[in-house]
Structures are given as structure tokens and as C-alpha cells.
């Protein structure tokens, strides 16, 4: 799919005209830069305590103010983006891996493999996902790795259904039949002929999935069972800040805004990609 430069330029031209999606893409890139270049962006250390400058309102020196321990909130929000990006990408990566494998196997082989895998998908979809995540996280030691893995393990079903549907239509297409006729192995057909053609919808789902994973992590951290202090995450900065909401609003406002902007950006980007990759609706 991606190898075809004509395809890319067509998609890019469609994507470019969608201002909202473009803005989303710019924000996503900016967030990446901010989190990688965090030490260059801010002169402060995210866990540097300063008893003389506690709960200062936003100013030129401390753009987002300081918290109850005198830490610079802007710095903590910037470093918090590292947690969010990590969770978003690892969780979605795992979900993609499982979902794509399940979808490929179910769609390609059909029969009982398909029935069993798709019933598993049905079962998993019945659970209120957040309940499952809570149950597991609360019983294990709190750790960012567990959070990422569990968000991934509970988020692959949509991808599986999507990939399976794509495979079902691709399986009977001429180029696949041709490959089979030439004696290609199942593995080769799946990896070289089917997978590349099923990638567009997966890309869209993945983008939207990153947004969902970031929201879930922040909710877990807000409930106090996500990323543990002193590591800054947008959710746990908010939790700490809500105690002071009456006289230090900046502690609650900025981390929330950071989540909002990030999730919004990924969503707009994902929707834009969908429209650009699948132009049937916006002709």
C-alpha cells in the first residue's frame, strides 16, 4: 500500500484539504518534539522541590504556576507527555499485534478457527472494558508496564473484526488467487499480498486507539491506581491538584487541557486519515 507513491500523493492531497485533520497532525508532531526535547524546552527538573515557591500562580517564570511542593507545573506537564505517548503507542502496538493476527487467521482460514476466534471477540466485547482493566490493575502492583499491557489486551477486538472483514474480501481477489496458483505458501500470501492491502483501516483505528489509551491511562492515574507519583503523568498531576482547586486552579486546569488537546488531535488526525484513505463518502 505505502510503497505506491502515486497512492500516497493522492491521499496526501485529500488529507491536506482537511484543515481540522491537518491541525491534528501538527499538534501530534509538536507533542512528539516536546516530549523528546523536554530537557531543552524547560530549564526546570520535573521533581525538583522548592519550598520557597509553593503554589505560585502562572507567571513569566512559571508558565503554568507551581504545585504544592514548589515543582514547576509546565515542566511536569511536558514530562507527563512522555508517559502518555508511551502508554498510547505500546498499548496500541500490542492491540494491533493481537488484533491483526487474530483477524488474519480468522479471515484467511475460516471454518472452526474463525468461529472460535470470533466468539472470543464477542465475549471480550461484552465486558465493560474499564471494569476489566480496573480489576487487573488494582490487583497487581501499580506499574506503567502493566497498564500498557492490559489496555492492549482489552483493546484488540475492533482491529480483529476489521482485519477479518478486509481479509474476507481480499481472499477471493485475482491477485491472491494468482499467488496461490503460483504455489505461494499461506504465510507468504498473508504477509505479502493480504496484509499490505488491509492496512489502511488499521492505521485509522490505531490513531483513534492511541487517543483512547491516553484517556484510559489518565483516568486510571486519576483514580490513583495508574502511574504512581513522583513520576508525573497528566492524570496524577490532576489528582494531586484537585485538593487545591479552590485556591490553585492552575494545578487542575493545565494537565486536563493537555489531555484534551492531545486526545482531540489524535482523533482529528484519525478521522482525517479515514476520509483521505477512503474517499467514498466525501466525493
Amino acid at each position: 500500500m505505502i510503497r505506491n507513491s502515486y497512492f500516497i500523493s493522492v491521499v496526501w492531497n485529500r488529507f491536506r484539504r482537511n484543515r481540522l485533520a491537518l491541525a491534528g497532525g501538527v499538534v501530534v508532531i509538536a507533542l512528539f518534539l516536546l516530549s523528546f526535547l523536554a530537557p531543552l524546552v524547560t530549564p526546570y527538573d520535573p521533581s525538583h522541590l522548592d519550598a520557597w515557591h509553593v503554589l505560585l500562580p502562572p507567571s513569566a517564570r512559571h508558565w503554568f504556576g507551581t504545585d504544592e511542593l514548589g515543582r514547576d507545573v509546565f515542566t511536569r506537564v511536558i514530562y507527563g507527555s512522555r508517559v502518555s505517548l508511551k502508554v498510547g503507542f505500546v498499548a496500541v502496538g500490542l492491540a494491533l499485534l493481537i488484533g491483526t493476527s487474530v483477524g488474519l487467521v480468522a479471515g484467511f482460514y475460516g471454518g472452526w478457527a474463525d468461529s472460535i476466534l470470533m466468539r472470543l471477540v464477542d465475549i471480550m466485547l461484552c465486558f465493560p472494558t474499564f471494569f476489566l482493566i480496573l480489576a487487573v490493575i488494582a490487583m497487581l502492583e501499580p506499574s506503567i508496564w502493566y497498564i500498557m499491557i492490559i489496555i492492549g489486551l482489552t483493546g484488540w477486538m475492533g482491529v480483529a473484526r476489521l482485519v477479518r472483514a478486509e481479509v474476507l474480501t481480499l481472499r477471493e481477489r485475482e491477485f491472491v488467487l494468482a499467488a496461490r496458483g503460483l504455489g505461494a505458501s499461506d504465510f507468504r500470501i498473508i504477509v505479502h499480498h493480504i496484509l499490505p492491502n488491509a492496512l489502511s483501516p488499521v492505521l485509522v483505528t490505531a490513531t483513534l486507539g492511541v487517543a483512547g489509551a491516553i484517556l484510559t491511562e489518565s483516568a486510571l492515574s486519576f483514580l490513583g491506581i495508574g502511574v504512581q507519583p513522583p513520576t508525573p503523568s497528566w492524570g496524577n498531576i490532576l489528582t494531586a491538584g484537585k485538593e487545591y482547586i479552590e485556591f490553585a486552579w492552575w494545578l487542575s486546569l493545565f494537565p486536563g487541557l493537555a489531555i484534551l488537546v492531545t486526545v482531540l488531535a489524535y482523533n482529528l488526525l484519525g478521522e482525517g486519515l479515514r476520509d483521505a484513505l477512503d474517499p467514498r463518502l466525501n466525493r
Binding site: 483516568a219 486519576f222 484537585k242 487542575s252 486546569l253 486536563g256 484534551l260 488537546v261 486526545v263 482531540l264
Partner: peptide, 15 residues
């Protein structure tokens, strides 16, 4: 509507 989706519910509730 995307704003609604992207706003963390707990944050909106808090505000």
C-alpha cells in the same frame, strides 16, 4: 462532538 469525546470525563466533572 470531538471535544466532548476528548474531554476527560473526570476533569470536566471536576471543573
Amino acid at each position: 462532538v470531538f471535544l466532548g469525546f476528548a474531554i476527560p470525563t473526570f476533569w470536566l466533572a471536576l471543573l
